[in-house]
């Protein structure tokens, strides 16, 4: 695992939930929320939880002003690129528009330190096929000026997810991974899914921190 993991993907692919899961489980120092698009269900609403796990959160609004829809990026967001003692996860907004925000750190980024990971759920209509995901990866790379270094299989239909669904996702993603010579870094599995199957990459159970229990 590299010191800095940057999560990108189409919007609604599950970047924010995964960012929180990885930050907590991998005991990351800093979670930088660069999602300036979504008004709800963002990692910045998880202030207290992350604090309890000693993850420091850099928010994409004026500090703790959750109700603001004014995009804001704290200068603290660049710290992990200059302070080599820090581990960090960057949670980008969806699509190439979100990936563009990385450009501001361009001069500071040492690519040796950075894993640029694409979160994929094949049950999102825009990333249902290998060709669509391929196109997405190319636009993400073009707008961020970074090479994608790995893929994350987050194929799910939330509470309706089955083992079979994740396998379907893996088939599509694996075939693309082979074509692009990229690793599948993680497969995320919804907590309720009963499976002994070993999927590609590190297998992680997805804890849904952002979705309320009645959703």
């Amino acid at each position: 695992m590299k010191r800095i993991q940057v999560l990108t993907g189409h919007y609604g692919s599950g970047k924010s939930e995964i960012a929180i899961n990885l930050a907590i489980e991998n005991k990351i120092d800093m979670l930088v929320d660069l999602d300036v698009v979504n008004p709800y269900f963002r990692s910045r609403s998880m202030h207290e939880l992350l604090e309890a796990h000693q993850v420091s959160l850099v928010e994409s609004t004026i500090e703790k002003a959750l109700g603001s829809d004014l995009p804001f990026i704290s200068a603290k967001g660049s710290r992990p690129f200059s302070d080599k003692s820090l581990t960090a996860i960057y949670d980008l907004a969806g699509t190439h528009a979100g990936a563009k925000l990385l450009m501001q750190y361009r001069e500071q980024i040492d690519i040796q330190d950075v894993d640029f990971l694409v979160v994929i759920n094949i049950f999102r209509m825009e990333t249902a096929t290998k060709e669509q995901i391929f196109d997405l990866i190319k636009t993400l790379e073009a707008s961020s000026q970074l090479k994608v270094t790995g893929l994350i299989n987050n194929t799910n239909l939330m509470k309706e997810t089955t083992e079979e669904h994740i396998k379907q996702g893996e088939a599509v993603i694996k075939s693309l991974a082979e074509q692009l010579n990229l690793p599948i870094r993680y497969t995320f599995i919804e907590e309720h899914v009963e499976t002994n199957h070993i999927f590609e990459g590190e297998n992680r159970r997805l804890v849904r921190y952002l979705a309320k229990k009645w959703l």
């Binding site: 919007y11 609604g12 049950f123 999102r124 209509m125 799910n156 239909l157 309706e160």
Partner: peptide, 8 residues
């Protein structure tokens, strides 16, 4: 079935 955001 697909996974969608309400607005979409």
């Amino acid at each position: 079935k697909v996974l969608m955001k309400g607005n979409e």
